[in-house]
Amino acid sequence: MRTREIIAFFALIALILLAKYVLPHPMQFSPTLSLIIIILLSLTFIIIGVLTLQGKFVERRIVFIYVGAALTLPFFMQIELEVPISPEVQSAYDQIESLNPGSKILAAFDYDPPSAPELQPMADAFMKYCFHKGIKVIIMGLWPQGPQQAGQSVEAAFEDDPALRDKIRYGVDYVNLGFQSGNEFVILRMGESFKAMFPADIYGTPYDSIPILRNVKNYSNIDYCMNFSAGKPGTQEWVQGAVDRFGLKLSAGNTAVQAPMIYPYLQAGQLDGLMGGMAGAAEFEKLTGYKDKATTFIKSQSFAHIVVIVFIIIGNMAFLRGKTERKVK
């Protein structure tokens, strides 16, 4: 380890101790301070641009620091960002909104903790909205950790409104059927019998003794389906196995990586609505009125996008400069 790396290591420790024991908790920047920080960062971009034109290129770690700062600083800034609603998120919301109290919705949680930053906010907003509207939720997962993520959403709804703890009863207003392995084969089999794939819920209660599942044999007894998906098995398999084969009505919340592959299904009408990535989550939070993490995160993401765009411009400036130099030589 070089000397400067040892110094950097101890500087990091000092920063952590400072943040942990000296700085105010929670820490917030006033709008004026936020504006000053933004202006200062913009000025440094100009300096980097000028240096680049002079042939003094910044190293990649500087780019990492800027992206890191763009992601972090908005956590502390008291600024509001307008979140326009896209038609696909509006459509997903409208479908759930049109359900009557007492309707049964199948919620498939097909993701794990790594995808939670994008999908958990939309799942939380969905669960809060359903519980407040009196929609009954049947939870399941084709990913092992999916039902646990659903449990977190239920807990988030109860923490948001403690009155729901008394109002919403497990087994009557919602049920967690747990995880079932088998990917698309589970979806196909559920088209004939839910019970065949989930003979008991996550706690081992037999299917027939759960009140919410009485009269629920297959997809024909479900009013709507919402899928939160981070990959395979996920939305694509639900469209192929349940929508196109059994006529299930479906909307989905996807990670941003997956969303472009799902858009063709939306365009073809195989999918009613789609929430793509953090932007989709922020829009859904706005529509449901349960603004939470996605509304905060989207600010960071927008700032980081600006930083990336600026560095793409700076990178092209460096490229064009190199091209001109080569021509001169």
Binding site: V67, G68, L71, P114, P117, E118, T255, A256, V257, G277, M278, A279, F297, S300, Q301, A304, H305
Partner: peptide, 8 residues
């Protein structure tokens, strides 16, 4: 976008 969300 997705990678930034993970970092977030």
């Amino acid at each position: 976008m997705s990678r930034m969300s993970l970092m977030l």
